[in-house]
């Protein structure tokens, strides 16, 4: 009896997680897959098996342009967050000497990420706007005559805000892997005559790769899914895949949005699978 209970325990413990993710994640996605083949008009959705939602999505050059734009955002934001994330994590892990100071500085980086994304987005408006701090500062100093228009409501603003919102998702995993690098490896490299940059390039960077990979998964999936940053920071002048879906949703074109969702999901999962070939996350936790 006891042995039976002991064997059943992990199943019982895993059940709530399975039920919640099953009902709120797996079933909704399977349903979207089904609905993406349905017909619709302004009044409702009609079950069936039609492929025109996909034909319309994949046949339109707007879709391809939007995907291109979203991938461009993902690539630039990835490069910026990886660069910042690596150096911030490296500084915290190898240059800050006491564990207490490391913890304090890490928390300083973390706290803003636990506050509202939308507030952090709109906080750029008084900085970047036509009469914002940067423009009035530059005009006041006589560097420029006219305020720079492309600071706010532009692709630049979108990318800046995304880097602002998502860098921590890069810093944390890289910091985590760096903290587990054996410091004696660095000592050995130094004793062997390696210079600082050689240590970084040949010792630390290769060992930090799993952290960079996990950070990449976070940043890429967050950017690919983003619509609010694109909408607010571009002032409606730029597009992303999720924003396109959002517009279809507000027009109640659910089957069209579902087809879009499936295409986006396949793309994101392929990207993640590609990254997971480099790193085994279960080992990294």
């Amino acid at each position: 009896m006891n042995a039976l209970l002991a064997r059943a325990t992990p199943y019982l413990q895993a059940t709530p997680l399975l039920l919640i993710l099953g009902f709120f994640l797996a079933i909704p996605i399977l349903l979207l897959l089904v609905v993406s083949f349905w017909d619709y008009d302004f009044a409702g959705m009609y079950p069936g098996f039609f492929t025109f939602n996909y034909a319309e999505t994949l046949g339109s050059w707007v879709t391809w342009k939007t995907y291109g734009n979203t991938l461009k955002f993902a690539a630039i934001v990835w490069a910026a967050t990886a660069f910042i994330g690596f150096w911030v994590a490296y500084f915290l892990a190898f240059h800050v000497r006491t564990a207490a100071m490391q913890m304090v500085l890490f928390l300083v980086c973390t706290v803003p990420f636990l506050t509202s994304n939308i507030i952090r987005m709109i906080s750029w408006i008084p900085v970047l706007g036509r009469n914002g701090i940067i423009n009035s500062g530059l005009v006041g100093a006589g560097v420029i005559e006219q305020p720079i228009e492309w600071l706010l409501y532009s692709d630049f603003a979108v990318i800046l805000a995304m880097v602002h919102l998502y860098t921590l998702f890069m810093v944390t995993p890289i910091f985590n892997t760096m903290m587990r690098i054996d410091k004696s490896l660095v000592e050995a490299a130094r004793d062997g005559g390696a210079r600082d940059w050689q240590i970084i390039w040949n010792v630390i960077l290769p060992l930090a790769k799993p952290g960079i990979a996990i950070g990449t998964i976070f940043v890429v999936t967050l950017v690919m899914a983003d619509f609010s940053t694109v909408q607010v920071m571009s002032g409606g002048q730029s597009a992303s895949v999720a924003l396109m879906m959002r517009n279809q949703m507000s027009l109640l074109q659910y089957p069209a949005a579902a087809a879009n969702a499936i295409v986006l999901l396949v793309l994101v999962l392929l990207m993640v699978a590609g990254i997971l070939r480099i790193v085994d996350i279960r080992k990294e936790l």
């Binding site: 909704p28 979207l32 999720a242 659910y254 969702a261 986006l264 999901l265």
Partner: peptide, 18 residues
């Protein structure tokens, strides 16, 4: 892990339709 990487708007749409 999938729950982490599936774009949020897809979750929103899926549950809404469900």
């Amino acid at each position: 892990v999938a729950s982490l990487v599936v774009p949020s708007i897809i979750v929103s749409l899926g549950i809404g339709v469900l």
